[in-house]
């Protein structure tokens, strides 16, 4: 069985974001980078499936600058067999359509039985790439999964809907699934596995070799949201803060009445 998992490297969302000089994305320096949270669930599910079926080849794919290889190594340490890196310093200027076209181009050649993606990326949050890849390949896709099982060429899964309701769905492979938070418990790579991952194949190919398509979505401007909040910001020593908060709760709420 051939399995692909697509991951993206994103900044830690607790970072302080500055708009870049071109005004079309955030400044990439001085940020801590990590695996897109949703993709950790995708990698974990792919690794579990590989363990289940035994005879499988699990490839992890990521489009981005050389910096993303660090995150790919984490996926290899979690249990992926090999890495396919599409080297692109300008990947942040590509829209979901352009990113999906690259992934679909590679996947078409390789004919994977199952493709895992996250339901969305934390920085761009478009929730498009996975479904677009599937549509480009002409295979079914199941999105926002919180439960997944596979047997004999069939996927049985649960999609998460609003309010905690789930929809039971199934489809035949080849297929693509997008993973939602809580689908499983992503493993932490162990030290021996981190060492082993260093020897795994991590092939890097320049994006130009894939004839990338042009983006169809243009970014006109990026800016922090206008501060609407009339909210009070308090800083300082915890004990003094606590006194201030109690005073405010007494004055502004009935909580301490």
């Amino acid at each position: 069985m051939k399995i692909l998992v697509c991951i993206k490297q994103v900044p830690d969302m607790e970072s302080k974001f500055k708009v870049n000089a071109a005004g079309n994305w955030y400044e990439e320096t001085d940020l801590a980078w990590r695996m897109n949270e949703y993709d950790e669930y995708a990698v974990e599910q792919a690794v579990q499936l590989k363990t289940q079926v035994g005879d499988a080849d699990l490839c992890v794919l990521c489009i981005g600058s050389d910096r993303v290889k660090e995150t790919m190594k984490k996926a290899l340490a979690m249990g992926c067999d090999r890495g396919f890196h599409i080297a692109d310093d300008e990947s942040h200027l590509k829209d979901p359509f352009a990113i999906a076209s690259l992934i679909a181009g590679y996947a078409k050649e390789q004919s994977f039985d199952l493709i895992f993606t996250g339901m969305q990326s934390q920085d761009r949050g478009s929730a498009q790439v996975g479904v677009l890849v599937a549509e480009m390949l002409g295979i079914p896709s199941l999105t926002t999964l919180v439960e997944f099982s596979y047997a004999d060429g069939e996927i049985n899964a649960k999609r998460e809907l609003e309010g905690g309701i789930k929809a039971k769905v199934s489809c035949k492979t080849p297929a693509l699934v997008t993973c939602q938070l809580g689908l499983n418990t992503p493993r932490y790579p162990t030290l021996p596995n981190i060492m082993k991952a260093k020897k795994k194949e991590l092939l890097s190919t320049p994006v130009a070799e894939f004839n990338p398509v042009a983006a169809i979505l243009e970014t006109l401007q990026v800016a922090p949201p206008e501060k609407k909040g009339g909210g009070l910001i308090l800083e300082g020593d915890p004990a003094e803060l606590a006194d201030q908060l109690i005073k405010i709760l007494k004055e502004k709420t009935t909580a301490l009445a």
């Binding site: 900044p11 969302m13 974001f17 708009v19 955030y26 829209d95 979901p96 359509f97 934390q122 920085d123 761009r124 949050g125 478009s126 929730a127 498009q128 169809i216 979505l217 243009e218 970014t219 006109l220 401007q221 990026v222 800016a223 922090p224 949201p225």
Partner: peptide
């Protein structure tokens, strides 16, 4: 082209959030 999670119309174009709403993109 798809524009996901629109929060505002600004000068006839659309605004979407990025990075857990710490940034907004006009697209």
């Amino acid at each position: 082209a798809q524009i996901s999670e629109v929060v505002e119309i600004k000068d006839g174009t659309l605004v979407v959030p990025s990075c857990n709403a710490k940034l907004r993109r006009q697209v």
